[in-house]
Design a binder for these strands. Sequence first.
DNA 1: CAGTGAGCGAGCTTCCGCTTGACTT
Length: 676
Amino acid sequence: MSKKSVVIVESPAKSKTINKILGSGYMVVSSMGHIMDLPKSRMGVDVKNNFEPEYIVIPSRRKYLAKLKKETKNKDVIYLAADPDREGEAISWHLKNQLGRKKEVFRVTFDEITESAVKRAFDNPHAINMNLVNAQQTRRVLDRIVGYSISPLLWRKVTRGLSAGRVQSIAVRIIVNRENEIRKFIQQEYWEIEALLRKEEGERRSFTAKLDKINGVNPEIKSEEEAVRITEDIKKNKFVVSNIKEGTKKKSPLPPYTTSKMQQDAFNKLHFPVQKTMRIAQQLYEGVELYNKESIGLITYMRTDSVRVSNDAQKAAREYILNEYGEKYYPAKPNVYRSKKGAQEAHECIRPTIPLRNPDSIKKFLNADQFKLYELIWKRFLSSQMSQALYAVTTVEIGAGIYLFKASGTTVVFDGFTVLYTEADNHKDEERRKDDWKIPLLKVREELVLMKLLPSRHFTKPPARYSDATLVKALEEEGIGRPSTYAPIISTVVARHYVKRIKGYLHPTELGEIINNLLVTHFPTIMDIGFTAKMERELDDIEDGKIDRLDVLKSFYGSFIHNVDEAKTHMKSIKREGVKTDKICELCGKPMIIKWGRRGKFLSCSDFPKCKFAKSITTGIKCPNPGCEGELIERRSTRGTFYGCTKYPNCKYTTRSLPKEDDKSESEKPPELNNG
DNA sequence: CAGTGAGCGAGCTTCCGCTTGACTT
């Protein structure tokens, strides 16, 4: 290299690694993500002029850009090594425009940061792919038009500060839809009947079998009377083993973590909200001081949708398994996993940088949360390279006249990867414990002793509300949002007061439901849950050069702007009409309505502005302060929502979460799925 | 910790997706 070269990557952590690979002939610096974007204070899209975006240097990045300018000043060649996707291509394009005058500028892309891949990339430098840039700009412009057209409409129709967008509005819709399903749900009573059986009189151990068929069809027992009648009838019969099935079941380890899977698992097992998981993962990624003061990155990059594993890491994991667990846990061939379709393979899965570094060996250098998350990541990764688990499954069918009972037992033959990692699910654990009851050795046609019949009453359960974890899962399945945005999406809808987190579950607020209804009515296309998937397909076509970005934007905008115009005149003005209540104005006797102001919702006289009477909405829950006659009321501070006493400042009681109100708790209780 | 809203009309709120900030509570 006779010429002086500079390489620009996205993140500082990456620049270190790449510098090591390339050696001193190159200087590697980082852009810290995007350096240019549309202006914050205006639309920044010239709709009449080919949807030309007005990209400006992001004000907060001016410093970095100035630094980059210095660093590239006396270099002849710039290599743009941002991630190999459309966002990375756009970053490269912007960097070229800002820094590339009178220089040779090349784009280099690699799918993993290993010596061979990086060197191969530098042997094949290429030009910036404008198809990718165009796809990014289409995405950006579309999101801006949607967000910056609908949000101001909501300011006009409802209240200041509201927002809408391709992603956040769908997140709210998913949550509202679930709430409606829960409301519609009608509880059904059903009964199950179990038989407690013994092989023979005097035998100590008994086992249970469940009523599975009556006359060959599934039993549907809806009432206690029916259950009693059937139980009485069953008693008249002899219990005889009619069939025994012995089999084995294999269970494969799960792939290593992507961002969304890590967020879900940390939520279920550690009860971390996704924001917390990302914050701690960032700490592990940036590095923790170990033995010598040097700070060492403990995990790979935490924003990824790939399950790819570098060869070195895979080899290291396999060696560790062989040494620590032995050959039985060591698969003959390495386990291979496929990322979901369209994943960005430049990043690896989330894994320990050095598999040898087991959690206990570094425990004293980590705080409690860091340790817990590292342990989870380490175990999930190591287990992903271990052998399958093997179970023996026995199913016994027992006839009693027209009644057929079934008992099944599972025993672990070989624990395999589960020695390190199992999925969290309390209910399943209970089930398993039941299943693990050993069924004694039985023969077909053998008669059993009935100890007891156990009818039990059950109710069908409504679907559970979303948690952070299940919402991220749902969004990912619909292709909505990216690893870098899952956590911010939840923060946004909570910050807008569309959604409220109660005991780990996401409940829509009245405001959230109102906004959702307005948007579904007036923007059915945007509010279609499949909208993003459709957009992604079109962006793919732009990337492949099959269609022009203008065709995509024009056809989208044509109907969208029509919806905006229609909504301007026809969307219900909550600001004027409010939401009806059965309360009466204390001043003029007219009905009171709910409106939303900068401090949240409040009661207003429907005759405003003639009658200016207004009133706060209290929770109806008495202040728990002894002797205080006040009620609790929702307040907003800069640090979020809390509940205070109406008698403030005489009573200074505050709380973050509402104390239970006895007669109301039944319907307000979150479904008892995994208790978060 | 009183006051929220309409309208007059100043100026403000807002999107999604890349990254890591450190002008003192």
